[in-house]
Amino acid sequence: MVDQVTEKEVKLQLAKAIRMLEAIELLDMNGHVSCRILGTDRFLINSRKASRASVTVNDIVMCDLNGKLLEGDSEPPSEYHIHTEIFKRRNDVMSVIHNHPHYQTVLGIADVEMKPVFGIGAFVNNVPVYEKSSLINTAEMGAELAESLGNEISVQLRNHGTVVAAESVKAAFARSVFLEENAKKQYDAMLLGQDIRVLEGENLVRTRETAWQPSIIRKVWTYHEEKAIKEGTLAGINDQTPKTVLS
């Protein structure tokens, strides 16, 4: 049996990540965040019916790697295959986020490759593109998407959104934030109508080494968590009554 304290803490992290991502418009009425339970073939994810704006710890469900519901009162999102197929292929990945970020999606629509142009976004390297834009609601499509991701940290779903993979919920959250911030700065720079200056060479290497540390992940999470508390975004997150407003 999974340690209940650890499971409770992970559920709270997931609920916080979802609410914070919704507050900064990286999630909307759709999208999902998952976390593999260490040493098992199970994972936690927000339920399909839970509002992303008011998700609580009670809206986090447990499934096996075939998407079968093991604990919780509602089924997982229809795109759970994104998470299961990545977990099956990547032992290094503990958390997966599927979101719908504006600027990354716009760059994809314009067929513009994402480049490292911003300090904390310098981890952007190769962002592959999965060309099918519909819901990833079959195991076959989930497997294709996971193959497209390969060993990278993010894959773009053309005309749809983005998937981010990381070693923890907090790392996946931080990567999601700065992938979008990097894309926004790239987009804005391109509006000036000149060639953009991309980080490269030794400058890129040093920037990555100094700007993407565990301390940065903690700092990003703490900033957004404290801001969310101040703004009331996390109110009632430990409620035991699921917020059932979506289907």
Rank of each mutant, 00 (worst) to 15 (best):
M1C: 14
D3R: 12
D3N: 12
Q4F: 05
V5K: 15
T6D: 15
V10G: 03
L12M: 14
Q13T: 04
Q13I: 04
Q13P: 02
A15K: 14
A15F: 05
K16A: 10
I18D: 09
R19L: 10
M20A: 07
M20H: 01
L21A: 05
I24V: 11
I24D: 09
D28T: 03
D28L: 12
D28S: 08
V33P: 06
S34M: 06
S34K: 00
R36E: 00
I37A: 03
L38C: 12
G39T: 03
T40Y: 06
T40S: 12
R42K: 12
F43M: 14
F43P: 06
F43D: 06
L44D: 04
I45C: 09
N46H: 09
S47A: 13
S47N: 01
K49P: 01
A50C: 12
R52I: 04
V55L: 13
V55E: 04
T56N: 13
I60M: 15
M62F: 02
C63G: 01
L65A: 03
G67E: 00
K68N: 15
D73T: 11
S74I: 05
E75Y: 07
E75G: 09
I82L: 10
I82S: 07
H83L: 02
T84W: 04
I86N: 08
R89L: 14
R90S: 00
V93K: 02
S95C: 15
V96L: 13
V96Q: 09
V96G: 05
I97L: 14
N99F: 13
H100V: 06
P101C: 13
Y103F: 15
T105N: 15
V106N: 08
E113H: 11
M114D: 00
K115Y: 13
K115T: 05
G121T: 01
G121R: 03
F123E: 14
N126G: 06
V129Y: 07
S133M: 03
L135R: 09
N137A: 07
M141A: 12
E144K: 07
L145V: 01
N151H: 03
I153S: 14
I153M: 15
V155W: 10
R158W: 05
N159T: 05
G161H: 01
T162P: 07
V164A: 12
A166Q: 09
A172K: 06
R175I: 06
S176Q: 08
E181D: 09
E181L: 15
A183Q: 04
K185C: 04
A189I: 03
D195S: 13
D195P: 12
V198N: 10
L199T: 02
L199I: 02
E200G: 06
G201Y: 08
R206E: 14
T207L: 14
E209Y: 11
A211F: 01
Q213R: 15
P214K: 10
P214Q: 11
I216L: 14
I216V: 15
R218Y: 00
V220N: 04
I229T: 11
K230C: 02
K230G: 00
G232E: 10
T233P: 04
L234I: 01
G236L: 07
I237N: 10
I237E: 10
P242H: 05
P242C: 04
K243R: 02
T244P: 11
V245F: 06
S247A: 13
